[in-house]
Design a binder for these strands. Sequence first.
DNA 1: GACAAATACGAGCGGTCGCTCACATTCTAT
DNA 2: ATAGAATGTGAGCGACCGCTCGTATTTGTC
Lengths: 209, 209
Amino acid sequence: MTGTGTQAAEKPRRRQARGERRIEQLLEAAAQVFQEVGYPAASTNGIARAAGVSPGTLYQFFPNKEALAVELGRRLMAELEQTHGRVLSGADTTRPLAEILDTVLDPLIAFNLGHPAFFVLIHGPEAPGEIVSDHEELHAVLQQQITDLVARRAPDLPIPELDRVSVMAFAIFRAGLALVMHSDGAQREGYIVELKSALHRYLAPVLGS
Amino acid sequence: MTGTGTQAAEKPRRRQARGERRIEQLLEAAAQVFQEVGYPAASTNGIARAAGVSPGTLYQFFPNKEALAVELGRRLMAELEQTHGRVLSGADTTRPLAEILDTVLDPLIAFNLGHPAFFVLIHGPEAPGEIVSDHEELHAVLQQQITDLVARRAPDLPIPELDRVSVMAFAIFRAGLALVMHSDGAQREGYIVELKSALHRYLAPVLGS
DNA sequence: GACAAATACGAGCGGTCGCTCACATTCTAT
DNA sequence: ATAGAATGTGAGCGACCGCTCGTATTTGTC
């Protein structure tokens, strides 16, 4: 796949090492600003300033603000899979439910705590009229992985119920994750336990203990 | 507190019937715009236009955009309590949990479906740096009522656990409500059932069936 | 060293935002 | 009838937005 010019032939844009470094700086700055003020309130000029470059330089590498968020999401998603393995799709669905939840949720929570921008990106853009493909894809990928996980655990579940349960489970996860993210110390530990309890109790009747 | 008679003695602003009507128009228009584009993206000029008045007229009655949201929240909250009675604080906690959930959730869901702006307002403003008192009060009032409800049902619950469970329950409710609001027809019915199931299963071990 | 491509700058364009203000109109109390 | 308060207008201010572009600098290649 990484061979000479197989897929990336559409953009023969040659990039210097300096450019690659700038891209990293910009994404890092974007992550910082996103988590500080949220995606909608984050300004491209502010991101450029945080990266120590001019606005023009930002647009040398990213066509617009959305592209910044999309690429950041891509990288975070890749890093999630790299550092924690295939968390969702690799889970052993024959284990007890509580164990599955631990092995799935702990890495996800840890990753979100370590990369708060990820949490910002999987929370909808709030404005309904936004360009749909914004963070929607990140959301959809995670949702699909959860649905697959549930389907593997309960293969005989009718499709509509499978979808409903999976969507609800993801919603509960995001809601609980928000509580975890906005607390700290002992409280945070408490919410983590609470989130696991909520999901366990919700899923046990459907997936078995 | 504010002494006898009307409580707004600090603002002896005399209001004509026309002014009262304008206020209604403006709040109605604000509710419309909020639910259409969300609170952050709603523009005061747009709200004024939707109400059929000039921007200056809007600021004749509301000092700023936030005041519009706050007053709208106040009125919606009042209407909720008026039309559905004291839904939360009046629930009979000696009934079976499933019944309590029905009597509490059905009015709340119906009200949100009938007043989508309410749903927008109880969803955080997304931007962390926002003026804190924005929708925060509405949120806090509902949270407190839920906590009281849980406390009445389980008086022996230690305070920290009471708080944690109540906050988590409210979070699950909001997450499920979002699914209900963004679906329709049979799917919506399904999510309503799912939300009730999730809350019942989550709360049953703590509150009893 | 020469030359083109890649990178970098930053003033500023066109736009929207929340909000203001000088002024006109309508209502109400006398 | 008339004064003064309440209501109404809408152009536009100042700030900020995402983004552009003419221009300057750095870099890789020969």
